[in-house]
Nucleic acid binder design. Sequence first.
DNA 1: GCGCTATTTCCATGGATATCGAAACAGCTA
DNA 2: TAGCTGTTTCGATATCCATGGAAATAGCGC
Lengths: 109, 109
Amino acid sequence: MDIETATRQLRAIGHDTRLQLYRLLVRAGPGGLPVGEVQARLGLPGSTLSHHLRRLVDTGLVRQDRHGTSLICTAVYPAMQGLVDYLAGECCADAPDAETATAPPERAG
Amino acid sequence: MDIETATRQLRAIGHDTRLQLYRLLVRAGPGGLPVGEVQARLGLPGSTLSHHLRRLVDTGLVRQDRHGTSLICTAVYPAMQGLVDYLAGECCADAPDAETATAPPERAG
DNA sequence: GCGCTATTTCCATGGATATCGAAACAGCTA
DNA sequence: TAGCTGTTTCGATATCCATGGAAATAGCGC
């Protein structure tokens, strides 16, 4: 997990509609949901939804698989897990001794 | 932690410069760093840095305290902890049974 | 191939963000 | 008060982002 990937994923879910969308897919479970179903539940125009979905897919947080004419959207759990792990490990250590314990030596300075 | 706060915080760190900035403050520990020191380390113009810092302070991820003429910036650990907790709990449960545990009845089917 | 449903791309528009120089402001010291 | 250092606000510009209607594409069944 590099910092660039992290920021892109963070920005992807840093939007009300997209976070709701992602939550919906997470709760739908491994079976996922077709785009049309998501559209019906969130009440969004197709083009807008497609735009947001693309963003999530693009950053690896969501996967899409064809199933007939429908496109099934599924939350990619490991991706979010990796992001949470990154935040907790790299950024969220609640003590400065993390520098000597888990954090790599400061490269920037 | 409501979804609106979550998205705002996510968007705040969903930016390369701001995530680097936040990491820097986390690694600096509870003692924090003055703005000038951060500016020197990241090599940013003061106005740009101030803009980003304001964003982080505004969302509660960073705190600022006067110390003479310097302004000490400190990472607010509980804020990030809350965000990580929210992501892990609300969004990152790898099973649909989260619906029966915490989810509202949006289970239209 | 034709028609049907599901989904995306195209295009335009309005709004938010990022950037940074210049000037203003805050607090200390003499 | 004058002057110094540290930090923010002002102002302007370029860029990215969000939104959604209309047209195009993808796959299925006949």
